[in-house]
Each structure stands twice: as C-alpha cells, then as structure tokens.
C-alpha cells in the first residue's frame, strides 16, 4: 500500500493538534483527513467516514453566499487551490446542522513538497465572530 508523502502526514499530525477545523485533500480533491474540530462542520466524524471522495463530502458541506444561495464549488478556496495550486481566502456562510447560517472564514494552501511537486491541499476554518 502506498503511503502518503511525509508533507501530507505532517500536515495531518499538525491538524490533529489544532483546535480549529482543518480539511486535508489529495491532489484531486478527495478529503483524506479532517480533524476533530472539523467534525462540527461536516456533522460526522473521520472515525466514521474515513476518506471521502469529492462527490461525497461536497454534498454534506453546504456553503452559501451572502444572500443564502448555494455557492458553486469552484468558488471555494479549497477547490481553487486544488485547481491552481495557490493559496486562497474567502468569507462565506455554511448551513449548520440546526439549519442556521454560520459565517466562516476559510484559508487554503497548497502542499508543495521538497521536490516542488503539488501533493495536496489544506483548508483551515475560522468561525467569524462578527456574524
């Protein structure tokens, strides 16, 4: 079985120590890890789901624009990073498990390894306190 590159493994170990939600995807957008704080966003646990293809986690995670309309995936920082291998940041809303809109900030960055190869992407979420 092929192991992930150490840059990805180290990102998971870092995410595991953080109290803010973190998603880690591979180079095509499959969600290969999310930490415990991110379970609140997805409403499920990594222990239960394991890795999830884009088609699966994309339907659980419901981002909205400022008018409450669904945000197309290509507008999300993480998806942009997967496509252009650059960092991105955006403020938007997500529908909570209780059906309420929560304003969040997301910063995503590409994982570029020692060889210069793109290995995956990471998104970090902050709850927006002024919402």
């Amino acid at each position: 079985m092929a192991s992930y590159d150490i840059e990805i493994i180290l990102n998971r170990q870092l995410a595991d120590c953080l109290s803010i939600p973190v998603f880690i995807t591979d180079t095509v957008g499959n969600l290969i890890f999310y930490n415990e704080p991110a379970e609140k966003i997805l409403g499920t646990s990594f222990e239960s789901t394991g890795e999830m293809p884009v088609s699966e986690w994309g339907t659980i995670f419901k981002p909205l624009d400022e008018k409450g309309r669904p945000l197309p995936p290509e507008h999300l920082p993480l998806v942009k990073t997967i496509h252009d291998q650059l960092p991105h940041h955006k403020v938007f809303w997500i529908e909570s498990l209780q059906g309420e809109a929560e304003k969040i900030s997301v910063t995503s960055y590409p994982v570029i390894g020692r060889t210069g190869a793109f290995l995956g992407a990471v998104a970090i979420f902050w709850e927006n306190k002024d919402s």
């Binding site: 092929a2 180290l10 870092l14 595991d16």
Partner: peptide, 18 residues
Amino acid sequence: ALGQSGIIHDPKWISGFE
C-alpha cells in the same frame, strides 16, 4: 511518531512504511 497521536496505525499515514 512525531505528532500528538504518535504512530498512526494506518500504513498510508506512516512515514517510511513502504
């Protein structure tokens, strides 16, 4: 074993496993 969890017991997530 670097990290809070030590060695993650999944070969995909272990440095040097291959």
